[in-house]
Each structure stands twice: as structure tokens, then as C-alpha cells.
Amino acid sequence: MPYLGVFLDGRGFSSTEIGELFALITLARIAGPNLLAAIADRTGKHLKCLQLGAFLTFSTFCLAFFVNGFWPLTISFAIMMMFWTAILPQIEVLTLNCVHAHAGRYSKIRLWGSIGYIVFTVLTGLMIDLFSSETPIFIGAFVLLSLFVATLFLTEPGHDPSINQVTESIWKKIHHPVFYGFLLSAILLQVSFGPYYGFFALYTRDLGYSGQTTGWLIALGVAAEVLIFLQAGKLIEKVGVKWILFLSMILTAIRWYLLAVLAQHWVVLIASQVLHAFSFGMAHSASMHFIHHYFGKKYQGQGQAIYASVAFGIGGAAGNYGAGWYWDQGQGAEFAFTLAAIFAFCSALTLLMIPAKRM
């Protein structure tokens, strides 16, 4: 994903088209997570849903080898994104069930995804320098095929029949000020990620950094994320979900502003990447902890799906579209990241309206 902008740029897309494509495929995240969630929660067959979704994700991603042009690529990536986001809640539910929602154990498992991310971002950046901007789709296909194969070796955690005895409606959980506040904060955070997800690799290239250097910078951010995952469980239990999220949003706002005004200095660029530990690592761990405990076992799959579809779907689409609109082939980079910092700050302010005891 960090190199999708480079891939599209290599195929002749303008920054506006890249932003529009990112926005349109991100909209698929609204429908995607709900495709399998209700079935998985009702049957308890989270693993079967994960395996089916992983196969369909790989299959549809491979369409990128055979199509070109704005709409063919947009449609193929959107279909892929729909299936991809359908399996993400199932991965989270399987993991949380295996560790019995223990925040420390969850974080220590989740960090291995970050380690894999480091390996492939560095490798992809190097391969782009050696070969071409088409490299990311070859590596992406390999990763997705490997994911499907890996799911075939997993086993389904024991299904707890007592969860079917819960009679409270999920709508009572959804229609509550606490959840609305959490969701609004998450949407604003994802809006702020628009310039980073869509244009960071192009931004660093415009600043004179090589593809391999960009790979190392992205890897540095994820390495910081790995380190914070090791401590996330203890920090969440000690400080609480609300204040962990609030701190993460404030640091994210600082991060985007540093990228806006001082990214030409490599020390500042490195510092901003280290803050990814909070922008994603701590924010993700705390959010997963909140959703799992807020919705309980019976509705955890649907709760994850609602969070993913609304926060990442609506928030991500709006952020990507806005970033593409203001980027202007790199001329609007400072304004785009400054606006991102404002959205992250507003995300933090939203959390102040939620009582800490309810999170």
C-alpha cells in the first residue's frame, strides 16, 4: 500500500486521479467488513470466512496484471479491497479469542505483522530502484497468496455456546454516545492519514530521497510500532483507553505538522516516522481493546466490521480524496499535511467528550 501511489504514477496517473482512485477503493471498506461479519458471528466459523476472503482477495488483486486505465484499475482494486477488509475483522476476532482479549498478549502477536511489513517495505523500495514502478503489484500478489496458504494451517478456536444466549441487541451498543464519540474520533484520525497513505512515497521522492531510503523510512515507522506493541498492553491497563487514544492523536497531529513544514530535514523526517508508534501502534491496540470489551463476544465480529467500515471506509475515503485534490503534483504538500494535523487534533478533542470510565 505505501507504494501504490508510485505504481499509479508509473502508469501515468495524475495526483488528482491517484487521490480519486484511493478514495473510491477506500469506499469499498464500507461494505467489505460487513460481508462476512454477521455470518461469522452467527455460526462461529470465523476461520472459514477468513480462508474464503483471503482466496478472493488474492484472486481479484491479480486483475491488476491484466487491466490498465483509471476505471479498470479502480474497479479491480475496489473489489480486492472489499474482500480484504471483509477478512480483517475475522483476523482480529480469531486473535482476540485465542488470547482471551488480553491486551498484552494481543500486542505481542500483532507485532509480527509489523515485522513482516518492515521486511517487505524495505524490499519493495529496493526492488523499485532496481526494476520499475510495477514491482509493488508482483510483491503484493506474493504476499496475498502467502496469506491464503497460511490460513489453511490455522485451527478454529473453541466456540463458546454461551454467547448465543445473549439477548441484548447490537443496536443498543451502536446507538450510544460513547460509541458515537469513539467512532467520530476514529473517522477524523483516518481522514488525517490521507496524505500519508496516498502520497508519502511520492513526497519523499520529490524531496530527493531514493526508493530504498523511502523503504527504510517506512520500515522505521513500523519498527517503532513494534516496540510500542510490546508495551501497549501494560500502558492501556495502567493509563486507560481514553487517555492512550488522546495522547496518540495529539502526537499524530504533531507528526503531520512536522511533515508539512520540516520534511526536508532528515532528522525531522526520522522523528516523524518514530511517531508512527502512536499514530498506528498505540491507537490500534487501544481501539481493538475498546471494541472487544464494548461489544462482548457475541457481537465482536460485527463490532469490528462497523469500526472498519465506517472509520476506515468513510474516513479513509474522505482523507484520500481530499489529499489528492490538494496535492497538485506535490505543490500542495505542505497544505495537505497541515490540514491532516488539524484533523488529528480534532480527533483528540472529540475524545475529551467521552467519560474515561466508559472507555
Rank of each mutant, 00 (worst) to 15 (best):
W327A: 01
V310L: 13
L275E: 11
V310P: 03
G319M: 01
G319C: 01
H265D: 15
L262H: 11
A340D: 04
W256E: 06
A271N: 06
I236N: 12
A336R: 03
H293E: 00
I244T: 14
C346H: 07
S279K: 09
L247D: 02
A271Q: 08
V241W: 07
I244N: 15
I270V: 15
Y321W: 13
L258H: 11
F343R: 13
V239H: 05
V226M: 12
I228N: 02
G233N: 10
F345S: 10
Q304W: 09
W256A: 09
A311F: 01
F343I: 13
S279A: 15
A348W: 09
L269G: 08
W325M: 13
V261T: 12
V261H: 12
Y326Q: 09
F335Y: 10
Q273G: 04
G313D: 09
I236D: 14
G281L: 01
G240P: 07
F229H: 11
I291L: 15
A333P: 03
S272N: 12
A318I: 15
G233C: 04
W256P: 02
H293P: 01
S279G: 10
L235W: 13
Y307P: 00
A260I: 05
L339G: 09
K238L: 07
I291S: 01
G316S: 02
T338M: 12
F229E: 05
G240Y: 04
D328W: 00
A271F: 14
A283H: 09
Q300K: 09
V267D: 05
V267C: 03
L275R: 07
G324M: 04
A260T: 07
V310D: 08
F278P: 14
H284D: 00
Q300D: 06
F337P: 00
Q331C: 06
W256Q: 11
M288H: 01
L259N: 13
M288A: 10
A286W: 08
V239R: 10
M249I: 00
S287K: 04
Q264Y: 10
W266S: 12
I314A: 14
G322L: 15
I342D: 06
F337E: 09
W327D: 02
V268L: 14
W325L: 13
L262D: 11
L258Q: 11
V310F: 11
W256S: 05
I250W: 07
A336W: 00
Y257E: 13
G319Q: 01
A317K: 05
F290P: 13
V267I: 14
Q300H: 07
V239K: 10
S272R: 10
K242W: 00
Y294K: 00
I250E: 05
Y321F: 12
M288Q: 13
E334S: 15
H265V: 14
E225G: 03
L339A: 15
Q273P: 04
F337Q: 05
C346E: 11
I306F: 13
A224I: 04
V226Q: 06
V310G: 08
T338F: 08
G322Q: 03
Q304E: 10
S272F: 11
F345T: 10
